[in-house]
Amino acid sequence: MAQFTVLFVCMGNICRSPTAHGVMRHKVAARGWGGRVQVDSAGTHNYHPGEPPDARSLAHANRRGYDFADLRARQMVEEDFARADLIRVMDWDNLALVQAMCPPYAQNKVRRLTEFCQHHEAPVVPDPYYGGDAGFESVLDLVEDACDGVLLHLEQLGKPLL
């Protein structure tokens, strides 16, 4: 069976993209797609290489039943464009950065994560790093909704069944 890879990208890979990574990994496992859908995350900047996700992201996610303390920050590399089937970016600035680094053959893989929200209307997943608890909760709300939308998109493509 073929494996399908979804890559989530934010700036430093310690708040938003690992949250999306952890939520999607949880949702993929709950559907029994673990062997068919791989989830990854990276940052456009190398600010926190090898560091775990932000403790506030972990705490808020844990309250909702998500555990992604095992993830470590890394910077996006050129090979990610070949490895990933879908690249979902958190905001406009990082979208522009990813599109600028992206080879022509992979441009169709890159989109904003919030394009897949089914219940929330938000152009981006805002960076909660300098805010309070409400920001981390908002990130989770948007990420959960958008991950459900990405999973629906995969079902429509027939990807997990390959």
Rank of each mutant, 00 (worst) to 15 (best):
Met1Ala: 08
Met1Asp: 06
Gln3Arg: 15
Val6Tyr: 01
Leu7Met: 14
Gly12Pro: 01
Asn13Val: 12
Pro18Tyr: 13
His21Ser: 00
His26Asn: 10
His26Ala: 12
Gly32Ser: 05
Gly35Ile: 09
Val37Cys: 05
Asp40Met: 14
Ala42Arg: 06
Tyr47Ser: 09
Tyr47Cys: 03
Gly50Gln: 09
Gly50Cys: 05
Gly50Asn: 08
Glu51Gln: 15
Pro52Phe: 13
Asp54Tyr: 05
Ala55Tyr: 12
Ala59Tyr: 13
His60Asn: 11
His60Ala: 11
His60Lys: 12
Ala61His: 05
Ala61Asp: 06
Tyr66Ala: 04
Tyr66Cys: 05
Phe68Ala: 03
Phe68His: 08
Met76Ile: 15
Glu79Ser: 12
Glu79Ala: 11
Glu79Met: 03
Phe81Cys: 06
Phe81Ala: 01
Ala82Pro: 00
Ala84Gly: 00
Arg88Tyr: 11
Trp92Phe: 14
Asp93Asn: 07
Ala96Arg: 15
Ala96Ile: 10
Ala96Cys: 01
Ala96Trp: 13
Val98Leu: 06
Ala100Leu: 10
Cys102Lys: 08
Tyr105Ser: 00
Asn108Asp: 06
Lys109Tyr: 10
Val110Lys: 08
Val110Met: 03
Arg111Gln: 12
Arg112Trp: 07
Phe116Pro: 02
His119Leu: 13
His120Asn: 13
Val124Tyr: 15
Val124Lys: 04
Val125Ser: 01
Asp127Pro: 01
Pro128Thr: 11
Tyr129Ser: 08
Tyr130Leu: 09
Gly131Ile: 07
Gly132Tyr: 12
Asp133Arg: 15
Ala134Val: 13
Ala134Thr: 12
Glu137Ser: 02
Ser138Trp: 14
Val139Leu: 04
Val139Asp: 04
Leu142Trp: 08
Leu142Asp: 02
Val143Trp: 10
Asp145Leu: 07
Gly149Val: 11
Val150Cys: 01
Val150Gly: 00
Leu152Ser: 09
Glu155Thr: 12
Gly158Pro: 03
Pro160Glu: 09
